[in-house]
C-alpha cells in the first residue's frame, strides 16, 4: 500500500497513574476512510486529541507524509491540514453558514472581511461535497436540521485544504435518512483525496463507509483490519476483548 499520510508509532499518554494509551499505532491513508472503534474508555478520544494537538502525546512518534512532526498545539495540527469535526458540533447558532465555515480563519482584504471571497469559497467547498440540502449560504446555522449542521461542520473542515479530517461520532444524534446523507458525505470527502478518520460506536455505519477498521482496546490497538475482509461479529470480538489480534494489515 502507498505511504500513509499520517502514521502514529507507539504513542503513549498517561493521566497521572493511569496509562490511557499504551503504545498505539495508527495509520490513515489519503482517499481512505479509517474507522476507529473501541468501547468507552478505550482511549479513542485521547488518541484524537493528541492528533489535533489539543492534548499532546507523552511519547511515541507522529509521522506526517513520512516525516516526523511535532503536534503540541492546535495550530501545528492546523498547519498540517489536520481538522477535527467534534461530536457536539462546534458551530455558532447566531452566525450564518459562511461565517461558521470561516470562523477563526476569515479571509481579509486590507484588514476587513472579504465576504465575497468567503462566500464563493464556501460555495465551492459545499459543491465539491455535492451538498444540495442547504438553501442559502447566508442562512443562520440555528435554522438548520441536525444533518445539515453536520454537513456544515464537515464542510468547514475542507474549506482550507484539509489533508486529514477526523470525525468524532458524526452520526450519533441523527435519524436514519440524515445518517445516510452524512455517511455519503464522508465517502465523498475521502474520494476527494482526504484521509478520513471516523470514530463511531455504530458498526453498521462503520461497515457502510470505512475502508479500514482500527480497534482500540484498553489503550492498545488490538486489530487493524480491512473492512471488506472482516465482519461485524469479529469486530465486536476485538472491541470487547474476547478476540485477540490475528492479523495486521497496512
Amino acid at each position: 500500500m502507498t505511504q500513509p499520510i499520517v502514521e502514529l508509532r507507539q504513542v503513549t499518554k498517561s493521566f497521572g497513574p493511569v496509562d490511557v494509551l499504551k503504545g498505539v499505532d495508527l495509520v490513515a491513508h489519503a482517499g481512505r476512510v479509517t474507522a476507529l472503534v473501541g468501547d468507552n474508555g478505550a482511549g479513542k478520544s485521547t488518541l484524537i486529541k493528541g492528533l489535533a494537538g489539543v492534548q499532546p502525546y507523552d511519547g511515541g512518534e507522529v509521522l506526517f507524509d513520512g516525516q516526523a512532526v511535532s503536534l503540541h498545539h492546535p495550530r501545528e495540527a492546523a498547519r498540517l491540514g489536520i481538522e477535527v469535526v467534534y461530536q457536539d458540533l462546534a458551530l455558532c447558532d447566531n452566525l450564518d453558514i459562511v461565517q461558521n465555515m470561516f470562523l477563526g480563519r476569515e479571509e481579509l482584504a486590507s484588514g476587513t472581511f472579504d465576504e465575497g471571497r468567503m462566500e464563493a469559497e464556501a460555495a465551492r467547498a459545499l459543491q465539491t461535497l455535492s451538498v444540495k440540502t442547504v438553501k442559502s449560504l447566508r442562512q443562520k446555522v440555528a435554522s438548520l436540521s441536525g444533518g445539515q449542521r453536520q454537513t456544515v461542520a464537515i464542510a468547514r473542515s475542507v474549506v482550507k485544504k484539509a489533508t486529514v479530517v477526523i470525525l468524532d461520532e458524526p452520526t450519533a444524534a441523527l435519524g436514519v435518512a440524515q445518517t445516510a446523507q452524512v455517511l455519503d458525505l464522508v465517502r465523498r470527502l475521502a474520494d476527494s483525496g482526504v484521509a478520513v478518520i471516523i470514530i463511531s460506536h455504530n458498526l453498521q455505519d462503520v461497515f457502510a463507509v470505512a475502508d479500514d477498521i482500527s480497534v482500540l482496546y484498553l489503550g492498545t490497538m488490538t486489530a487493524r483490519l480491512v473492512a471488506k475482509d472482516t465482519n461485524p461479529a469479529d469486530v465486536v470480538g476485538y472491541i470487547t476483548g474476547t478476540t485477540r489480534m490475528t492479523e495486521v494489515d497496512a
Binding site: 462566500e119 460555495a123 455535492s130 451538498v131 440540502t133 449560504l137 435518512a177 445516510a180
Partner: peptide, 16 residues
Amino acid sequence: SEGPAVAAADDAPSLL
C-alpha cells in the same frame, strides 16, 4: 424534504 441520497458531484447546482 431531505432525501437520504444526494446526487453525484457533477450535477450539484451552485449554491451561490
